[in-house]
Amino acid sequence: MSALHVSVDTTSAVPVYEQLRHQVSALVTTGALREGDRLPAARALAADLGIAVGTVQRAYRELEAAGTVTSRRRTGTVVAASTALEEDVRWAAEGFVERALSSGLSAEQALDVVRAALVSVARSRAR
């Protein structure tokens, strides 16, 4: 099992289950968590984070509904198989990063380019 490095801010306006869902989803998307990696049991993660078990269970349910993880008796909650589309997007992102950095852009400048592209595409799709 890969270590699950997540944290929560109980004072945030963002619900704790949503913070967990987002962080685990990001770890899967970036490849930090891979297919078959086990997530900690809900009780263990709740104890580690000092939150209610039901909060972790809700985050896990939402991740399962999105197809990010699967839960089964005896095996627990594991990262689901990624789709070919997800792998293709990850490959394209890595290619972009290689090109951006080799062109002399800083990591922050590369992120700015991606943010601008996201805004541009969202605007064109809204038309």
Rank of each mutant, 00 (worst) to 15 (best):
Ala100Lys: 04
Pro40Glu: 07
Thr83Gln: 07
Val119His: 11
Leu118Ile: 06
Leu45Arg: 04
His5Lys: 12
Val121Lys: 10
Val79Lys: 00
Ala117Tyr: 10
Thr55Tyr: 07
Ser82Gln: 14
Val24Ala: 06
Arg115Cys: 07
Glu62Thr: 09
Leu63Cys: 09
Ala117Ser: 13
Gly50Gln: 01
Pro15Ser: 07
Ala93Arg: 09
Ser82Lys: 11
Ala42His: 06
His22Gly: 00
Arg43Ile: 02
Arg43Trp: 02
Val53Met: 07
Pro40Tyr: 03
Thr77Asp: 06
Leu27Asp: 03
Val6His: 00
Glu64His: 11
Ala65Tyr: 04
Val24Trp: 04
Arg34Ala: 15
Ser102Lys: 13
Arg34Asp: 10
Leu85Trp: 07
Gly36Ser: 08
Ser71Glu: 12
Leu33Gly: 03
Arg61Tyr: 12
Ala107Val: 15
Phe96Tyr: 15
Gln109Gly: 09
Gln23Ala: 03
Thr77Gly: 05
Thr30Ile: 05
Glu86Asn: 10
Val79Arg: 05
Arg38Lys: 14
Thr83Asn: 05
Pro40Asn: 04
Ala59Thr: 10
Arg74Tyr: 12
Val16Cys: 06
Ser103Asn: 14
Ala44Leu: 11
Glu64Leu: 02
Ala26Ile: 03
Glu62Ile: 07
Val14Asn: 02
Val53Thr: 14
Leu85Ser: 14
Ala92Lys: 10
Arg73Pro: 11
Asp9Phe: 04
Val28Thr: 08
Glu86Leu: 05
Ser71Arg: 10
Ser7Asp: 07
Leu85Lys: 13
Glu87Ser: 13
Ala42Arg: 01
Asp88Cys: 00
Glu62Phe: 06
Arg38Pro: 02
Thr70Lys: 08
Tyr17Glu: 11
Ser106Gln: 09
Gly67Leu: 05
Ala42Tyr: 00
Glu86Ala: 15
Ser12Phe: 03
Thr68Asn: 03
Ala42Thr: 09
Leu45Ile: 01
Ser7Leu: 00
Asp88Val: 00
Leu49Arg: 02
Glu18Leu: 15
Ala13Glu: 11
Thr11Asp: 14
Leu27Asn: 04
Thr83Tyr: 08
Glu94His: 08
Arg99Asp: 12
Ala66Phe: 05
Glu94Pro: 05
Thr83Glu: 07
Ser25Leu: 09
Thr75Gln: 14
Arg115Tyr: 08
Ala65His: 10
Ser102Arg: 15
Arg90Thr: 03
Val14Gln: 13
Gly54Lys: 06
Ser12Thr: 05
Thr68Pro: 01
Ala65Phe: 01
Val8Tyr: 08
His22Asp: 12
Gly104Leu: 05
Ala59Tyr: 03
Arg34Ile: 09
Ala47Gly: 05
Leu45Cys: 10
Thr75Trp: 08
Thr10Lys: 14
Asp48Gln: 14
Leu85Cys: 04
Glu98Gln: 12
Val114Met: 14
Val8His: 02
Leu118Ser: 10
Val97Leu: 15
Arg43Ala: 11
Thr68Gly: 01
